[in-house]
Nucleic acid binder design. Structure first.
Lengths: 322, 322
DNA sequence: TTGAAAGCGCTAACAT
DNA sequence: ATGTTAGCGCTTTCAA
């Protein structure tokens, strides 16, 4: 910048004015400065700018895994909103590890991101309190923060979706409906189990429930166990996209009524088509990002808690008779 | 930092030493400093650090679309390598728009990323030259840069994979094999067409080729046109994952031998299973990132041009008879 | 319309 | 083992 100034024969501040498009610069002077900029191939050092201004124009996004279609779609939505607001996205995958989540969040904060969007992995987010108090807004998506933290949240109607699916299977004549969910420590898994259990009422049988890491072997073993019962399940409700796919592989050749939570590509091309409870990951990301930017532009007020609707998409597998 | 120093009763530099884990600090002093840090909730301002040190410990990643499973997987691999090297990832989707690609790259450079990994959308990357000369290393992945730029590249064996697929179909008795590819301006699409054409030799018939945006309507129309020919195709080779899925939908109910370039989740669960030419997006991202970090740690020498192997995965659709 | 000077928070180089 | 000083490249404040 100093070089540009001396080449253009002006002071540092004038270059700064031109670079930032501030008013009150003589057009001829501005032109001279622009020429010097081009000639020297100058580009503003954002680090220095950030240091001085205190805002980074960067948003931090922590998700579980970018390689998971649900989160990559959410990610894209957040990115689009951020870009449209002139911000860049710093993102990281927690791999469902609380320690990695914490480290990512704190690293982002140390880099002074303007705001955070977090799909939490852990259950304790007290480490975020100082940052929140220091004025860094955060929005939690898909899952709420640990207790004692009052931040904006954007969740989907997990229990409602599970009720929808369970009722759908009941209405097609099933009485023995199994539920295959992720670890119960994961908020969405717990809520979906709750909705299922609720709706099953007296039909609930805990031998038809498996809450576990979605590993192929484990899922297969649990399904085998259930199918060997005296009164085996005639229908299966899977608690997330990954489990649905894993279960489909484990069941291959043993057709069974099935509804999965979360939609996934090709669900319509399988035979039978896979009935799902669909959420809208893109919409979820967009809404969370928009909420964050409202906070960034100064909107105060109590924490908002949004709950997005889900809908059932019948494609055949959920309509099979017992 | 000043506050921490005064609370701990030491000089600025001592705090800096403790924060950075530099040797040569009395353990007792260090402990006092750490206490002060905790008490004040201090965390280092990375912007200032970056400004002073000149390195951001950040890598910029430009891909086509995070929501595409191929690129999100690649993205995850890059992220893992970056994290293991103490770097963060600034990422953006170009949406196949050269202007957006350029803007992302230049914005990343203005933020002084230490290095760039780019899946290019455009054909002219002269805008990168000043940055490269200024010492910011870049690795191009999946597609090479425009002419005149000598940077590291990590590509897959596009033409070889297309030859493999075409030969596979020929060996199963097909003579009328259609090729459905993306726009010919996209490097990978052009290379795959080349391999296909090559292998078809005198059997090549341009009426069996469609190079286009992967829109459902367009793909359906082109396939209908081909199937209405006097000698319709008995097999189809699709040029990327998105086209494979689109074609599968368009063909629903009209079974046909099919091989797709790129593997995709559930390809094994469809009936028949979808035979593909598989590349390894995770490996591609990892290798590119490792190459970048070798450059960052000072390895010079001529630009490397890596070509990763592909393999055919037979699942049924590519083994159907004419 | 333009410029000079101060300082953002940190680290490198050089004392002590 | 600890401290002092200068300055990274920019924006802010105030003055001309």
């Amino acid at each position: 910048m100093k070089d540009v100034a001396s080449v253009a024969g002006v002071a540092l501040k004038t270059v700064s004015r031109v670079v930032n498009g501030e008013p009150g610069v003589n057009p001829a002077t501005a032109e001279r400065v622009r020429e010097a900029i081009t000639r020297l191939g100058y580009s503003r050092n954002e680090s220095a700018r950030v240091l001085r201004r205190g805002r980074t124009s960067t948003v931090g996004l922590v998700i579980e895994d970018v390689a998971d279609p649900f989160y990559s779609t959410l990610s894209r939505a957040v990115e689009d909103v951020a870009i449209s607001r002139g911000c860049l996205l710093l993102s990281g995958s927690s791999s469902e590890e609380p320690a990695r989540e914490r480290e990512l969040v704190l690293t982002f904060c140390a880099r002074r991101v303007d705001g955070l969007i977090v799909v939490p992995a852990g259950e304790d987010h007290s480490f975020l309190r100082p940052e929140l108090e220091a004025g860094t807004p955060a929005v939690f998506v898909d899952r709420p923060p640990g207790p004692g933290l009052d931040v904006d949240t954007v969740l989907c109607d997990n229990a409602g979706g599970a009720r929808l699916a369970t009722r759908h299977l009941l209405s097609h004549g099933h009485r023995r409906i199994a539920f295959l969910g992720d670890r119960p420590s994961i908020f969405t898994a717990a809520r979906r189990l709750h909705g299922y259990r609720d709706t099953m009422g007296r039909l609930f049988d805990e031998r038809l429930v498996s809450m576990r890491v979605p590993s192929p072997e484990g899922v297969r073993a649990d399904l085998d166990r259930m199918l060997a019962l005296d009164e085996p399940p005639t229908a299966l409700f899977t608690g997330n996209g990954r489990l649905t796919v894993t279960a489909l592989r484990a069941l291959a050749g043993r057709p069974m009524a099935l509804i999965g939570f979360d939609d996934f590509e090709l669900a319509d091309l399988l035979r039978p088509g896979v009935t799902v409870v669909a959420q809208d990951p893109f919409g979820m990301g967009r809404i969370a990002a928009e909420l964050l930017f409202r906070r960034l532009s100064g909107e105060s007020g109590p924490a908002e808690h949004l709950r997005l609707p889900v809908r059932i998409v019948p494609r055949g597998s959920g309509e099979l008779p017992p």
